[in-house]
Design a binder for these strands. Structure first.
Lengths: 187, 187
DNA sequence: TCCATCATGTAAACAGTTACATGATTGC
DNA sequence: GCAATCATGTAACTGTTTACATGATGGA
């Protein structure tokens, strides 16, 4: 049985919340611009694939969380999006407070997942794994710091705050891998 | 057109690598036991749903990365798994070195995702968001430290190392949110 | 005898990726 | 005129979740 038209208040998924947030901060943006944001992001979590974004925009419009303005562009249409009052309400609900406990839970880290199983490698490979990890993390941190330096102006307060989070966590990962390497050598 | 039987060397997905690693460290385990591990884990990344694990075990057996032993249990069969030589090889390849750059990339953090959009909240709600986040992160850290204390013995070296990673990152998140709250107040 | 736990699985739905396909606009 | 970029979309596929369904074993 298909669910009745627009169940109104199923809570937002992470991608939906993120897209709604982007539109809220960049009113009048296109789906393409939203994609670009995901594509440029250093997080590998979402690809920003067209197949994810375009259908999602339609869905958010049909749920009346976004409104769309269509301007003709030859045989095509250019669509720009703005958040509605209902959309802002849903965005705020998604943001919290209150925050769901899982939002603070341990996050997925492919390096950590692999760490559990390093016993399967030879001692030499383990060392190489750890130094490889440090090298990659350091280049990541460097790039993140460079990005931070380019975020200027009072409007960028929350962007900078978030970026400082990525840096803090990357630096914590570096210290952690280094510490593990030391512990391994002095075992 | 279905792809030709067992393409042998498509590289492992994260879940496949993880399952292979678990079987390598717990030879003779059941699919059920692997599920339990995911279900108990504090990371919300995988649910450990039966619909993910059971078909995956079959796939890994058909790729000859795992071998299965079947023992009758009434009208059912109990299946225990062991890693094969080919499985160990694939596991090592998945673990690295060399590590792919994306394994060190910024990880997904629902708190950070929300942080980008806090301008959409009232000042009071922002403060509440941040203190809520700290509270949740601290209870997470406490639980993680408790788990660490229970990991004893020389066999648990890598489990402890990974757990120390979760703690280090959670503590970094706490400092980051606290710092953001301070910056916000003195803006 | 009954309950908790161990154990195995499937079917439908869903979210997101990959790969493809196309057109419009702007600047050189 | 041509290339880069802006822009919109679809179809097939894949990997997961959700929800359901069932049976065996061991201990109180």
């Amino acid at each position: 049985m298909p669910r009745a038209n627009a169940p109104v208040s199923t809570s937002l998924s992470e991608l939906e919340g993120g897209v709604l947030g982007i539109v809220a901060t960049k009113p009048g943006c296109t789906a393409h611009a939203i994609r670009e944001g995901f594509l440029r992001s250093r997080s590998s979590h979402w690809s920003g694939s067209a197949g994810a974004i375009y259908p999602l925009m339609k869905k958010l419009v049909s749920r009346e969380l976004l409104k769309v303005e269509e301007s003709p562009r030859g045989s095509r249409v250019r669509r720009t999006y703005t958040i509605t009052a209902a959309g802002t309400k849903e965005l705020r609900r998604w943001l919290g407070p209150p925050l769901a406990a899982w939002t603070a839970a341990v996050t997925y880290d492919p390096l950590r997942t692999r760490m559990y199983f390093l016993a399967a490698l030879s001692p030499a490979k383990r060392e190489a794994f750890l130094s490889d990890a440090v090298r990659l993390l350091e280049s990541e941190a460097k790039e993140l710091r460079r990005e931070l330096r380019e975020m200027r102006g009072p409007d960028a307060f929350w962007d900078r705050a978030a970026q400082e989070g990525t840096i803090a966590i990357t630096e914590a990962r570096i210290r952690w891998v280094r510490k593990t390497a030391r512990a391994l050598r002095s075992r």
